[in-house]
Design a protein around this nucleic acid. Structure first.
Lengths: 111, 111
DNA sequence: TTGACATACAACCGATCGGTTGTATGATTG
DNA sequence: CAATCATACAACCGATCGGTTGTATGTCAA
């Protein structure tokens, strides 16, 4: 409801609205990967992939951990679930609509 | 997995990555609203809101129905659920990671 | 210490985004 | 029919996006 919540929702949905970033999420949810290992999977520059990782990190969808000269990225399943719960909230709004329609039918029939 | 699926995912997440469009979704999931009724809720032009509705419609998140000279928009809960199931798929990838870690621990301990 | 590797970040570019205004089309009402 | 209302859409604009190249910094290995 708050402005910060909306900012966070904007960042989360935006981060997931790109197929390369969704693919990165699949990989880092399956296990830790360095940025250059990730970059090796895509037909674009290292810098481009590094920016995608930064977008996901800023949205809180992954975290990084130093390991020597590498930066190991790991997916945060709780953040993914938080997006899911936003959708569940939307679904609850819809359930309210159905409940109101049911009430209307019930009221029409009681006479 | 297919290119079309990715296109659809792009469109769905992009459509939801804007707070005005998420607010429109809440309203049209709760019940039918004309485009001008929706536009009345926001501090922007009618044309801007009409474009937001068009983005949601193209993504399949809402449908429109003619009623006289009005166009009544209604939220599609199945489309919202389809986004949810994409997230669930991501979560399954994560569960696989946990299972592999558990296996590793079990294998280490059997001696 | 030097050289190679992994990462971060700035500057730039064309494309898309989110907004505007203006105009055209359809349906309703007088 | 004329006037009005609801909608759609094109053209435009500044900002952001997704990519590039180039450069700086930090870490490892010889």
């Amino acid at each position: 409801m708050t402005e910060d919540d909306e900012d966070r929702a904007d960042a989360l949905f935006h981060a997931l609205a790109d197929r390369t970033r969704r693919d990165i999420m699949r990989r880092v949810l399956a296990g830790e990967h360095s940025v250059s290992t990730l970059a090796g999977n895509y037909d674009m520059s290292f810098a481009a992939v590094q920016k995608h990782v930064a977008v996901l990190e800023r949205a809180g969808l992954l975290t990084k951990r130093r390991h020597g000269r590498e930066q190991l990225a790991s997916g945060d399943v709780a953040a993914v679930r938080s997006v899911g719960s936003m959708l569940t909230e939307l679904e609850q709004v819809w359930r309210g609509r159905i409940a109101r329609i049911d009430d209307l039918i019930a009221t029409d029939q009681e006479d």
